[in-house]
Amino acid sequence: MAASSGDESRRPNPLPSGLVSNLQSVLAARRPPSPEDAGSTAAEAEAPTAETAADDAPAKPVVLLTCAGGIQSPGLAALVDALVKGGRCDVHVCAPESDKPVCGHSITIRQTVSATSVHFTGAKAFEISGTPVDCISLALSGRLFSWSAPALVISGINTGPNCGYEMFHSSAIAAAREALMCGVPSIAISLNWWVCD
């Protein structure tokens, strides 16, 4: 979902608190060390570095999100909201423009893959015309975002289970696998839940 309205911001967070706590722990562990922790000299500490923001606060780790359910997926919106409210990471989103379930590790080869900027409160986001694997590949290429690599890729939160033989067909798991093959730690999150209107 795009920007949240005032009513949506008052909704309770549907994510289990344990999941949010675990994600925050992983992100805190991957935060770049401050110059003092690294034992750098005073001159090095005064010089601006990539790990130091303009206000001299340590840079937050970047987390890249995608979701096989598409950019409008309620699971993706819930995950973005939880991570943005936690404030421990910079959230970036690169997700398909529509629901792309059960397409496995497929990539787009005979069509142009387009990227369109979309609004997510607190996150930089793009919707992609291709598959979830296309999203991760394009995001990690450096053509959409200015960072060199994210600290973590999360694929989800996807509706329905991804277990057993379904793992071979799951585009959610394929997106996480693509990131891992590119050397970026990744996880896929799926919940057997259904959205009721």
Rank of each mutant, 00 (worst) to 15 (best):
V91F: 07
G130K: 00
D134C: 01
F120M: 09
C163S: 12
V184N: 05
Q72R: 14
A188E: 03
R88S: 12
A139V: 07
F168I: 11
A68D: 07
P96W: 02
V133Y: 00
N22A: 15
W194L: 11
A28D: 15
D90S: 14
P101K: 03
V80M: 05
S141N: 02
T108D: 05
D7F: 14
A172G: 13
A54Y: 05
P150L: 01
A57N: 08
L138K: 01
A149N: 06
W147F: 15
S34A: 14
A78M: 05
L144N: 09
R177E: 02
R143V: 12
L144W: 05
Y165M: 07
C94S: 11
F145W: 08
H92A: 09
M1D: 14
C89I: 10
V102P: 02
V26M: 04
Y165Q: 06
T121V: 08
S148V: 12
V184T: 12
R110S: 10
A38D: 10
D56S: 13
P48A: 08
H119A: 12
G86N: 10
R10H: 14
A29E: 10
D37L: 09
A2V: 13
R88W: 11
W147E: 11
I157M: 01
A95E: 02
A125L: 04
T159I: 07
G164N: 10
P32F: 04
K124H: 09
I157G: 00
P14K: 07
A54C: 04
E46C: 04
E178I: 00
A28W: 03
L64K: 06
E127I: 09
P16H: 14
A149C: 12
S114M: 04
S106W: 08
S129Y: 00
L83Q: 08
G142C: 00
N158W: 01
P35F: 06
V118N: 03
L152N: 01
A179D: 01
N22E: 15
R88N: 15
A59D: 04
V26I: 14
S4Y: 12
V26F: 01
E51K: 06
M1R: 13
T112V: 07
P132V: 02
I109A: 11
G183Q: 01
W194E: 08
L15F: 15
P35V: 07
C94L: 04
P96T: 06
G86Q: 09
H169P: 03
R88G: 14
R110Q: 10
S5R: 05
G142T: 01
R11S: 13
V63A: 13
S129R: 00
I157R: 00
